[in-house]
Write a protein that binds this DNA or RNA. Structure first.
Lengths: 109, 109
DNA sequence: GCCAAATTTAACCTTTTGGTTGAAAGTTTG
DNA sequence: CAAACTTTCAACCAAAAGGTTAAATTTGGC
């Protein structure tokens, strides 16, 4: 499935994963998405294009501001694909929270 | 988390995903992995290196044959990361089987 | 010891990726 | 209208990805 290519490729970049996590909290304007990163606005704009092409986010222009919105549906196929290696035990919530904490520390933000 | 980079990048290539699915059935020698693909052995060898670097497979040399083995543990972190977008409903098994059928048709095999 | 088999390495090529800067385009507001 | 703001586009660059072919390496069998 071609969509898996773009979804996994989009997820392989830490900047883009961080963006997705930021959007988990709320929709954001492009400038605000860019703010925490030490990178040009144009670079962030490209990352957002990649995420949009993969279907992981959508962008809607209202006035001069383009709002970015998480579209978790695209993750479903990828998630389903992973389930085919079904020997993962159910997610341990404690481990998961510790994991998220680590992710937010170590990453691009 | 750096490991996520390599795992997702490894999964973004359809040849590598097909290889993982082949290894789901049984361990395989490099030559046998390469057989269904219209691609040089050297190219497959590189793909296997990528999968090994990502921790998705392991390779053990016995005699002159190197055996490839699925290592689903590495998928766990990626799977956990996806759970952070927890709004996925539980996997529908029928949809999943239809999905697998499509994947095996359309892909590199 | 020599030949064949299994796999990797090396050198190379083309395309993609991720970044830069600067200009352009569309929108709002003074 | 003009100036300011938000975002993208264009041109460019370096590095990485994915492939090739040919040579090298390691091992097994006669």
């Amino acid at each position: 499935m071609a969509q898996l290519d773009t979804v996994f490729a989009a997820l392989s970049d830490p900047t883009r994963r961080t963006i997705l996590q930021m959007l988990l909290e709320d929709d954001m304007a492009v400038t605000d998405v860019a703010h925490p990163f030490e990178m040009s606005l144009a670079a962030i704009s490209k990352h957002l294009s990649v995420l949009t092409a993969a279907g992981l986010i959508s962008q809607e222009k209202r006035g001069r501001v383009k709002w970015c919105k998480l579209e978790p549906d695209a993750l479903r196929d990828a998630s389903i694909w992973m389930q085919s290696f079904g020997q993962f035990e159910a997610v341990n919530l404690d481990a998961f929270e510790a994991y998220l904490a680590r992710e937010f520390d170590g990453d691009g933000a």
